[in-house]
Amino acid sequence: MTPFLTRTRGRQRLHWTDWLAYAYLCLGVLLMFGPVLWLVISSFKTERELQHYPPRLLPYVQKMEKVPGYSDPLPVFKVTAGPLAGQEVAQVRRIGIVSQVVRPDAPQTIVKVPIKDRKPVEHVALATSNYAKLFKRFNFFQFFYNSTFITVVATIITLLINSMAAFALSKYDFRGRGTVMALIIGTLMIPPTVVLVPLFLIVRDFGMIDTLWGVIIPGAATPTGVFLLRQYMLTIPDEILDAARMDKASEWKIYWRIILPLSAPALAVLAILSIMWRWNDFLWPLIALQRQEHFTLQLALNSFRGEFNTDWASLLAMTVLTLVPIVAVFAFLQKYIATGIASTGGK
């Protein structure tokens, strides 16, 4: 138990505590990564394969073969008993417990084989049918568009208005600044989760219920964002602004030509946070959006639950498509996110 709680040890041979540590980490990898990986693998299984119990680790698809005289490719089976035992046959149709098959080299002669005497010929392959179905049967692109629109527009607005406020609060000395700061600190304590009812009324009065704007606007002014940016802007020397004033720059120009470029690292952190919040947002969109054509991906995923009596095939594919963009974006920006989230407390 003991030495593994501290870190100051030389680089000699692996101590037993090191083994314990690596064991824990490997278990961690299995537990943290495994489920998501399992979901991704499952999404590439055919619907038949999804029904398979016990589930198999890898996605299998049945071998299909084109047989002369039949327009569609036919599923291939291996016969396990009877006169054709050991041969691969293509199934034409199945009637009850009897399967009518043909030999690929003799496509005219139909042979009857009891279904218990045949086994499908399978190989590991990714089935994309779930994804194809998602695009064909459901309004996936609409959901994707809604989510993307909300994320992109909300992030732009958040960056713009929060950086403007942070600029005012960090670089101007005006009466009432303390009050504004106090009010913003105050809002840190009031998450939207506890003002849902009146928020709904106000957004309704603005005519924004069941519109994407009704999701975008209420969360655009985040105290976290203002703080993060203000803290950063305070480190920009005032003399640079004075120099720009001597250079005949207007205050607005100082904001966007000097302050914005110099705050780029902080803006990047806020952008990442905003993208994450918006893409993953759930409760407020659940309340504010009502018609299905306005649903975000998260709402669509949630609504799949009851409506289709859990159509896992589509649901799995859609889940993967929902998590891929965010994971992809963040795979590149891992360092930024970690520091960003750690420095702001995440929300």
Binding site: I161, A165, A168, L183, V195, P198, L199, P218, A221
Partner: peptide, 17 residues
């Protein structure tokens, strides 16, 4: 500079409270 932010704060945070 503060106005847009205060507008959103005001209507969608203070007023609801």
């Amino acid at each position: 500079f503060l106005l847009p932010n205060l507008f959103v704060f005001g209507f969608f945070t203070f007023l609801p409270v």
